[in-house]
Design a protein around this nucleic acid. Structure first.
Lengths: 406, 406
DNA sequence: ACTTTTTTCTCGACAGTCGAGAAAATAAAT
DNA sequence: ATTTATTTTCTCGACTGTCGAGAAAAAAGT
């Protein structure tokens, strides 16, 4: 149902607009804000004054006077208005980062994980300890950290911040919200990793000035297969989802997936699936929960040298991916696809299969194959996405607080 | 990007809210409007006064005084504020309906179509003539018809009101906007038929008071297979799409589809696909473009009597549908599915296959199978959907006109 | 010192919502 | 017939918000 509007909501929306334009274009002067947002100069004055009083914006002198006339006053985020932490959970390590309200990275470290260790307890303890360390190293009070944005592979319930199913812990759930007790008061955001990647890709493409960008898909190739879809809705806002692509049914070929089902895309295109085909292991067994990259590199090397079964394994993986993507574009719409993750180093071997799989649907025949780009540095994308989401969340809270606070 | 807000937009939004509540609950008194919308009584007064002056609302006396106190003044749409026509194009006939701004049906007739006739010209001429007839029979000036809402199977470009690909005309496009010259000035809405059905189903379920309804899918079974997905977005508004489900790749089994591709869902589950399997026609030929219902009934009868190949054909069709639906819930989320169309009369034969296909994915294993309901009267649903969409469009235009008009 | 230029700030007009209470209109009670 | 109770609609003033225009500020050029 529609919801009623009011003058206060107008102010909220326009304040959000000002903060968003500052995020997108960096520190701006009064005039530029007015120009970017379309708001009247007088309105911008009121809003910036308010945000200044709320101690989230600060005035900075223009360093290079350049032209004549009254010098501009530049508004920028007060970097000490709050802090955010991001956590990227992989099967073999966990990355922790800390940034301020201005979006500048203050600290970053990673801790190895033993992927054989499937219990959640050691992990959660290390998690809490690492966050403490993160705050301590930068001498920041834990109460000042307003958002902790976490990503993992697998299925996630973003509302309760619960990890529902993950390749690392299986069906053992992890309740992140429950982990951080006072003095932490941060809001916890938990999302699928590839959702974050899709978000970051959409941002990049939008900044690159792509016209008529409706949607973007990000496909992450690795031990597991992840897909994120970012769409700009009617109002132009970005809404991102992480469908269960890796475990979508590909074909009733009986290939066992580590999720327990048969014929998942991952069972063909995940690292263990490729290894299984290459080594002609029976399809009803899982050869290894975790396949080291060097092992995959060996198979790829053999494939490139002409070894039939290895070549075939990558080809089949590509085919499963291509068919899956053809279903994605059939069920959504044509959209650019960015492929990322450690599996991109084998994309030369996958490409033919992907193209073949894509070509099999009417959607692709009618509208052509979606443009595919390869973006290997997944870690950068994940950080970008985390930052944007966490900062947007902080901005949102700042504006919401205005009404009841003060 | 976000867009700026203003006090005028507030009024637009709230006016829309008032009209929408009148649509949902029927004619209402001042007090009830205030209650349903959450707007203050004073605000409702201003808005209704404005809409009254714009001649879209009228005051009606309360017939049964019931309680004591000042009698209520009921506001209702002025039925003569504008008219709408709906057109439902099927392969064997075209249905035309006319309704007023109050949503009451004024006239309805249908004209047979020769499905062997694949040229667009005779169709478009009949189309224009039928609309003229529709207006004339009710003595309504064609300029008073503000919206014509058209639905067809196949692929549609809703922006330009162009039929891109249809089972009837193939790749021959039909530009509906170009067909209606002055004195028509109606806005043309063109949508996939199953999109309209999904819209209507979402409305019904919402009215039935379903809690936490996120999304609804409608699956239409017939000569071709259609899917519509209706979702309530963050703001609670309904956004409906019609993915290319019927021609999504199901399996590389080589079954030729009439779209020219192989392995489409329709090639297994469309009427001609079922007939092909039942009669053991080679999968690389299309047995008939159009299979009469009596023919299908015969196959179904044989299947129910235990004839193996006929039973198998329906089972395979169900399997293709179930697998396709499992992909839908994997790529979107779990949602109730309403099955409609002439094919529902065979649902007893399809059911087992559908369930089997659904069960093959992790999504269904984790979250259970989506609830499936069968709603045979597709025509009613289509009309409901058309009316709601057309009336919403008219309401929207009324409100938008307020600003520049007068 | 004065002018030009550019930017920021301020003021009054206008549009919108809201709460409270006045006014209206009827049924019941006296 | 008049009064009272009740319910609904209408109206008024306060408040919040945006906007355009012009005043004020602040620097560079002359």
């Amino acid at each position: 149902m529609l919801t009623k509007s009011s003058t206060e909501l107008v102010r909220q929306q326009n304040s959000a607009l000002v903060l968003a334009s500052l995020r997108r274009h960096g520190p701006l002067a009064h005039t530029d804000i007015s120009h970017h947002t379309g708001l009247a100069s007088a309105t911008v004055s009121v809003i910036t004054a308010e945000l200044e009083k709320a101690e989230v914006l600060e005035r900075r002198e223009q360093q290079a006077p350049a032209a004549r006339g009254r010098p501009r006053v530049i508004f920028g985020q007060r970097r000490d208005a709050g802090y955010l932490a991001t956590v990227r959970i992989s099967s073999d390590m966990v990355q922790y980062s800390l940034a301020d309200y201005g979006g500048t990275l203050l600290d970053r470290f990673e801790e190895p994980r033993n992927h054989a260790d499937t219990a959640t307890r050691p992990f959660t303890e290390a998690f809490v300890a690492a966050l403490d360390k993160l705050a301590e190293r930068s001498r920041i009070d834990r109460a000042q950290v307003l958002v902790v944005s976490i990503s993992s592979k697998g299925l996630v319930d973003p509302v309760t911040a619960r990890l529902v199913w993950s390749p690392v812990f299986g069906a053992q759930q992890v309740d992140f919200a429950a982990l951080l007790q006072p003095p932490w008061r941060a809001k916890i955001l938990l999302n699928n990793e590839t959702l974050i990647v899709a978000h970051a890709m959409a941002l990049r493409m939008e900044k690159a000035g792509m016209r008529d960008l409706q949607a973007v898909a990000a496909l992450s190739l690795g031990h597991s297969i992840g897909l994120g879809i970012a769409r700009f809705d009617r109002s132009g806002e970005l809404s991102v989802t992480a469908p269960n692509f890796g475990h979508m049914l590909n074909s009733s070929d009986g290939k066992l997936c580590r999720c327990g089902a048969q014929g998942c895309i991952e069972a063909s295109a995940g690292f263990y699936g490729i290894l299984r085909t290459a080594f002609e292991v029976p399809p009803d067994t899982i050869p290894a929960k975790f396949v080291p990259l060097v092992e995959m590199d060996k198979i790829a090397l053999r494939a490139r040298q002409g070894h039939r079964m290895s070549e075939y394994a990558f080809r089949q993986a590509g085919l499963a991916l291509g068919q899956g993507l053809s279903r994605v574009v059939s069920l959504y719409e044509n959209m650019p696809i960015a492929i990322t993750g450690p599996g991109t180093r084998y994309f030369d071997l996958l490409r033919r299969g992907v193209e073949e799989g894509l070509a099999q649907s009417q959607q692709v025949r009618l509208f052509g194959a979606p443009p595919i780009s390869v973006v290997p540095e997944e870690a950068t994308l994940v950080l970008e996405g985390h930052l944007d989401r966490a900062l947007a969340e902080m901005d949102h809270d700042v504006i919401a607080a205005r009404t009841d606070g003060d």
